[in-house]
């Protein structure tokens, strides 16, 4: 597991002005999910989903509340295991590596697959700078120059650097809601994951902050594979290259975004995007 494609990027190419280098040059699908089902109780929350997420693009997952879209997202970095009693069947591969192989430590999976949450959650005891570097520091990185460089890159990539560069020592929670969310994205990017998962990242933000986050997503996809769960169909059309529609735990349709919204093949998809339910 350790000598994964992610570890091949040499440090020397990292400079303060460049972005954090694209961790993956692989053209294979980022995620290859085969027949994935997830159970919290007897009834599956996600039921037999097979899906391939293309590398370095934005994939949106849409669907009504309770359709299993968040649960599916969380099993992509094994976050669903935090819920006691959760079970998962099927296989998920990240660039060919089975994420659920018995010898794989979920911690390693989560270093490769970052996540941004619905509610922004900067650590309240930490400054802006500390928040960005926390993933590296608590994973054993001691090199101060490296940390400093990474922090600046991550903040630049999340379009926050110009706004906060003069008060990096202020508490992270002193920022506005939209800035906090971008700080959380910077925090996730700083550990150089191969994929970023976003669970309704803009649903708690006002329209201006939302558009900033969406711009950011568009920037990030040059380097990252992004999977975003959203209940906002306009957002999906704005940011996503391809869109998956979930309904009652099942993947109903997965197609390029324009195609899915303009020319849905399944009647349920059509019903949902025309607002007849959900």
């Amino acid at each position: 597991m350790e000598p994964s494609p992610a570890t091949t990027a040499p440090v020397s190419t990292v400079t303060a002005t460049s972005a954090i280098p694209a961790p993956v040059q692989d053209t294979r699908p980022a995620f290859d999910a085969q027949n994935v089902s997830i159970f919290y109780t007897q009834k599956p929350a996600v039921d037999g989903v097979t899906l391939q997420v293309p590398s370095r693009s934005v994939t949106a997952i849409i669907g009504p509340s309770g359709c299993g879209k968040s649960t599916f997202l969380r099993c992509l970095n094994r976050m669903h295991e935090l819920v006691p009693g959760a079970r998962m069947t099927g296989t998920i591969r990240l660039y060919g590596d089975d994420l659920y192989a018995p010898e794989i430590d979920p911690t390693v999976v989560r270093r490769r697959v970052g996540m941004v949450f619905q509610k922004s959650n900067p650590f309240p005891t930490m400054s802006i700078a500390e928040n960005v570097t926390v993933g590296l520091r608590l994973n054993g990185v001691r090199d101060r120059a490296f940390l400093r460089e990474r922090m600046e890159q991550a903040l630049r990539m999340s379009a926050l650097w110009d706004e906060v560069k003069n008060d990096l020592n202020r508490p992270g929670i002193s920022l506005s809601g939209g800035q906090q969310q971008r700080l959380c994205i910077a925090r996730a990017v700083a550990v150089q994951p191969e994929v970023l998962l976003m669970d309704e990242p803009a649903s708690a933000l006002d329209p201006i902050a939302t558009s900033k986050v969406e711009e950011l997503i568009n920037d990030l996809k040059k380097n990252y594979t992004i999977v975003i769960v959203t209940h906002n169909m306009q957002q999906a059309t704005r940011v996503a290259d391809q869109t998956a529609f979930f309904y009652l735990g099942k993947l109903i349709e997965f197609a390029p975004t324009r195609e899915l919204f303009n020319n849905p093949r399944q009647p349920q998809t059509e019903a949902y995007i025309t607002g007849r339910f959900g």
Binding site: N77, F117, L138, N139, A188
Partner: peptide, 20 residues
């Protein structure tokens, strides 16, 4: 949310308990 955020950064559980 703090536990989740830290977990998603690939931080070890015991460090999350103590340092987060």
């Amino acid at each position: 949310g703090y536990r989740e955020a830290a977990t998603a950064l690939g931080i070890n559980r015991w460090r999350i308990c103590v340092q987060i």
